[in-house]
Every structure is written in structure tokens, then in C-alpha cells.
Simulated assay, not measured.
Amino acid sequence: MPRGIVAREFGGPGVLVAEDVPDREPGPAEVLVRVHAAGVNPADTYIRTGEYSFFKPSVPYTPGFDAAGVLEAVGSEVSNLQYGDRVFVAALGLASSGSYAQQVVCDAAAVHPLPDRLSFHQGAGLGIPWTTAYRALFQRGNLQPGETVLIHGASGGVGNPAVQLAIAAGATVIGTAGSEEGLELVRSLGAHHVLNHRSAGNLDSVPTLTGGRGIDLVVEMLASQNLEADAELLAPRGRIVVVGSRGSLTFTPRVLMVREADVRGTALWNMTPAERKQAQSAINQFSADTGPATATATVFPLDDAAKAHEHLMSQAALGKCLLDCT
């Protein structure tokens, strides 16, 4: 029997238990994927608590929306996919049995061809992280060629693709990270400037780096800590897109008024079908033409999903977090 992670209650990482699960069969508009690798995302950890405002599954459930593997079966209504195809799964917002498993059944619309030159580990990171990065930069941030973007946490799961997409779009990228390893990773992705966000005064050089103009777009992973400092760095009519926050803060609205600047939130759960299609098409095109850089990933065995959740939310997390499901 295949293995899968089953959460029979909400709570801490310990509720994620590996079990033998029955073989699955796809419905008419579904496919069955033999999973080689599954992506572990921050949203998975929030959902596990049962207190996530965007999504609360019925228990028991198998977590996970992202995966990569090989098609083992296709439903009778599926004509664009076939047995043996290498694919990646990006199932947020679509029907799925959960990707933390050796098999996943999902809506055929969640499945996309995985280019031969990309590994299953790379493919398992193409769902939530790349869609979040694309939405933050373009659908919410309206990034234009020639603009300057500051990407906080550029060494992380979302920051990593954000750097690559922004560079491909012709932007100047300033990326931050919190360790020497992280800084080197951001440099390797091609960021034009790299700053250590754990150093005092780490943003003091931004005016010089931008020729005094300021930042056009900030992709913010921890707004509760950085929002006002971000706003003070903005160019006229600059934008901040909030991807993540872990609390509240005191903020001075006049900082925005002076610059006629915007603060915009984003969450993939709010995407329209048209926005989802646009983002996925762009990601597929990037994967086919350029391909994601081979970047740092921390890989855990499927049975150690609880440890993966603990790691992901720790300060040690760098790059993508994955489960090996082979």
C-alpha cells in the first residue's frame, strides 16, 4: 500500500502521522500522480493548526498542494495528459487528495508538464512559491521593466522565485537574507544588490543604490516588523505588497501620503480563475524557456513531515522545503 501523511486532528506538527493508505483512483476529470517529491509551504503549517482564516479542511485530511511526479492514471474526460508524463502539481484552489503522499489524485487542471531538464525536486516547488511570487510582483505589485524592487527574505521559498522572475522582467533587484549562506544564494540567483537583514542599518544604503530615487516595489515577507521602514524607502507612487506578517504594528500613514504610495495585501486564495490561469501560464513559460535556478532545498523523508514543518518555521529555513516521497 502507498504511504501518506494523515492529520486526524488539528494541532502542532505531531498531528502529522505517516500511515499506509488505500490506493486511489481518479474520477472522470481527475488524474493520479505517483509523487516523487512534495512541496512544504508555510500555508500548510497554518492550515494544520485549524485556525487559518482562508482554509479549514475536514479531518482527517492529507496536507499539501504542491508535488512533482509521474502520471499513473487519467480520467475518462482527460485528453491532454497521458500515462507516464512527468508533471508537477499546483493544486491550491482545486480538488486534490493532498500531496504529502506517494499518490495524489487531483483535478486535471492542477497538473502541468514538467520539462525534462527540471528535477522532481524543482517541480515540487513550482506551485505555491512561484505563484505567490508572480502574483506579488505583477498582479498586485504591477512591476515594470526598469523599476527597482526590494525583496525581503530573498533566500526563502517565495523570495527565491521572486528574484528570478523580477530579473527576467527587466527589474533591478535588491534582495535581503539573514545569513552568509543565504546572501550567497541570493547573489547566485543574479540579484543586483544583496543586504543582510540581520545587520543594524541594513537598509541605509538603499538611497545610494537607487541614486536617491527610492524603491518602486517592495515584496514584504514580515510586514509586522518592516512596514514603516519599507514605506520610508519608497519612490513616489511606490508600492509595498505584503506577502506575510506575524502580528500588528504601529504605523505612520503620513509616510505614504508624502509619496502617494500604496500598501497592498496579497493571498493566493483570492485569485480569480483568470488570474490563476495567467500566473500559471507565465510560470510554465518561464520553466520551459529559462527554468528555475537549481537552488538550496532542505529535503525530509515523507514520514518526517512533522520535522519538515518544524524546520520550515524555524530561523534555520533556507530555500525550499520538500518531502521525498519515493
Results as ranks from 00 to 15, higher is better:
Gly4His: 02
Arg8Asn: 08
Gly14Tyr: 09
Asp23Ile: 03
Arg24Asp: 00
Glu25Gln: 15
Glu25Met: 14
Gly27Asp: 06
Gly27Trp: 09
Asn41Gln: 01
Asp44Ser: 02
Tyr46His: 12
Tyr46Lys: 11
Arg48Ile: 05
Tyr52Lys: 15
Phe54Lys: 15
Tyr61Cys: 01
Gly69Ala: 07
Val70Asn: 06
Leu71Arg: 10
Ala73Cys: 03
Asp85Phe: 10
Asp85Gly: 13
Arg86His: 12
Leu92Tyr: 06
Ser97Gln: 06
Ser99Trp: 00
Ala101Pro: 01
Cys106Pro: 06
Val111Glu: 00
Ile128Thr: 13
Ala136Asp: 15
Glu147Lys: 15
Val149Glu: 11
Ile167Gly: 14
Ile167Val: 15
Gly175Val: 05
Ser179Glu: 03
Glu184Met: 11
Arg187Gly: 02
Ser188Val: 12
His192Phe: 15
Val194Leu: 08
Gly201Ile: 11
Asn202Gln: 08
Gly212Glu: 07
Leu217Gln: 04
Ser224Lys: 13
Leu227Met: 13
Glu228Tyr: 04
Leu234His: 05
Pro236Thr: 14
Pro236Asp: 14
Val241His: 02
Val242Ile: 14
Val242Phe: 09
Gly244Tyr: 07
Ser245Cys: 03
Gly247Ile: 15
Gly247Thr: 12
Phe251Arg: 04
Glu260Met: 04
Trp269Gln: 06
Arg276Ile: 03
Gln278Asp: 01
Gln278Ala: 07
Gln280Asp: 13
Gln280Ser: 08
Gln280Arg: 05
Asn284Glu: 14
Phe286Thr: 07
Ala288Arg: 12
Asp289Asn: 07
Gly291Phe: 12
Thr296Leu: 05
Leu302Glu: 11
Met313Lys: 15
Ser314Ala: 08
Lys320Leu: 02
